[in-house]
Design a protein around this nucleic acid. Structure first.
Length: 425
RNA sequence: GGAAAGGUGGCUGAGUGGUCGAAAGCGAACGACUCGAAAUCGUUUAAUAGGGAACUAUUCGUGGGUUCGAAUCCCACCCUUUCCGCCA
């Protein structure tokens, strides 16, 4: 959420900063509303001040044995009454104005960082670095072919259970999923992250706090009987974990790792990635998350990214890091580094992690603050996948495939998985 | 789902109609003592808005109501805890 004062005082700057996202905003109306709100606020505060004075006079009157120097007590009371009705009218106006303003502001995305590359869409993202040797061979099988051959998961039956874009993992497939989750959680814990296991259902306020609402309500599944949604990412409960708190700066940075199932409606992605593990309505993810001192969030962003990269390195999966351009940035993010893993069947890299610095955008929405030189300020939040489990499994199956149809398991995973190869189920 | 108790500052917790934005303690900051630290003593320490200060206003779960005046009384809702019921 952007600062209301900034919109009031320098709407052109806001429009400029957001124009690099490729969106055109005209904030003059919103500016008018915020100025009006401010005026009403001053007016109201004057009336309230007067009303408080009257109340004190009356209070004194009774305390000093009906001191007659104060004047006619009934007249004072009726003055108080008149003020009261004026005040309540103004309050109503203010409330309506405020709601109108907040509703609008919540729909405005974060400013892109000045360091983010300028560009209009993903074609203008910039590759920062590459790691590992991409596997390029003839007769490469896709992970869904491998999965079918080795009976690692099922989609046909699963569509009867739920619908398309869901999956049932079977035998070694399920085991590999578990191994990956445990390996990632353990690795991040060793690197100083505290594990949380948050709920999968979250309320509207939590979704608003991290930026999924109000704009993206059709991207999440909603429970109609309750004010609860299936969380699209652990970023939501992790942000909300410290909602309304003022965190002692000495405790910063707070680093959390959380495993969670993620639920996404994937509206508007018909026909994309219909096979395999890449795009599902439900998938598992290990998320890493920082609450950072505002002064250190840029270093934090580098660190959280390298912590996510570390998982790919340990798994020996080739990947690259991409600096997301201004036009392709997510709603809440000011800068994002995507990690893309090599998928031989696509002969290309595919997103497996997104590491974002949201600055104070989510903190402002969720009212999460800290102290800086005795002043209360919003802290910064950063999130990164560390990693998406399904996509990691796809990468392991494809990059580890052997001539005989088996799959080699990365060394670090062997103690978790229990053997070095998946041969048959 | 039923019953009871409760929701107050960074935290614990007192406060049942007026000088209460709120005792006390903890924590924190600063100072004294010390070579330094601990302990001790002293002072300070809620948030938000009004461009800083002064000052003003608002905020004691949320929303309404009574009153000149509400943390305090009334109503509704939300949440927490305990007991009962149900259940992995």
């Amino acid at each position: 959420m952007l600062d209301q004062k900034l919109i009031r005082e320098n709407p052109t700057l806001v429009e400029e900063k957001l124009s690099v996202r490729g969106i055109k905003l005209n904030l003059s109306h919103l500016q008018k509303l915020t100025i009006e709100l401010k005026n009403k606020d001053t007016e109201l505060s004057n009336l309230q001040s007067e009303s408080n004075k009257i109340s004190k006079l009356i209070g004194n009157y009774y305390h000093n044995q009906k001191d007659s120097s104060i004047g006619d007590i009934n007249e004072l009371k009726s003055n108080g009454n008149n003020l009261k009705s004026e005040i309540s009218k103004l309050e109503q106006i203010k409330r309506d104005l405020n709601k109108e303003i907040i509703d609008e502001i919540l729909k405005i995305p974060n400013f892109p960082s000045k360091n983010a590359p300028k560009g209009k869409d993903e074609s203008q993202n910039i590759e920062l670095r590459k790691w590992g040797n991409p596997l390029k061979k003839e007769n490469i099988k896709s992970h869904w072919e491998i999965g079918e051959n080795l009976n690692l998961f099922d989609t046909k039956r699963t569509s009867r259970i739920s619908k398309s874009r869901f999956i049932t993992l079977i035998g070694n497939g399920a085991r590999l999923e578990r191994a990956l989750i445990n390996f990632m959680l353990d690795t991040h814990q060793k690197n100083g992250y505290l594990e949380l296991m948050p709920p999968a259902l979250v309320n509207s306020e939590s979704l608003r706090g991290s930026g999924q609402l109000p704009k993206f309500s059709n991207e999440s599944f909603k429970c109609h009987e309750d004010d609860l949604w299936l969380s699209p990412t652990a970023e939501v409960p992790l942000t909300a974990f410290h909602k309304d708190e003022i965190i002692d700066p000495k405790l910063l940075p707070l680093k959390y790792v959380a495993f969670s199932p993620c639920f996404r409606r994937e509206a508007g992605s018909y026909g994309k990635d219909t096979k395999g593990l890449i795009r599902l309505h439900q998938f598992n993810k290990v998320e890493i998350y920082w609450f950072s001192n505002p002064e250190h969030s840029e270093e934090a962003h580098q660190k959280i990214t390298s912590d996510a990269e570390n998982i790919l390195k340990e798994l020996n999966l080739p990947y690259r890091v991409v600096d997301i351009c201004s036009g392709d940035l997510g709603f809440s993010s000011s800068r994002t580094f995507d990690l893309e893993v090599w998928l031989p069947s696509c002969n290309n890299y595919r997103e497996i992690s997104s590491c974002s610095n949201c600055l104070d955008f989510q903190a402002r929405r969720s009212l999460i603050r800290t102290k800086q030189n005795k002043k209360t300020t919003f802290l910064h939040t950063l999130n990164g996948s560390g990693l998406a489990i399904g996509r990691t499994m796809a990468a392991i199956l494809e990059n580890g495939q052997q001539k005989d149809g088996s799959v080699k398991i990365p060394d670090v995973l062997v103690p978790y998985f229990g053997s070095s190869f998946i041969k048959t189920n």
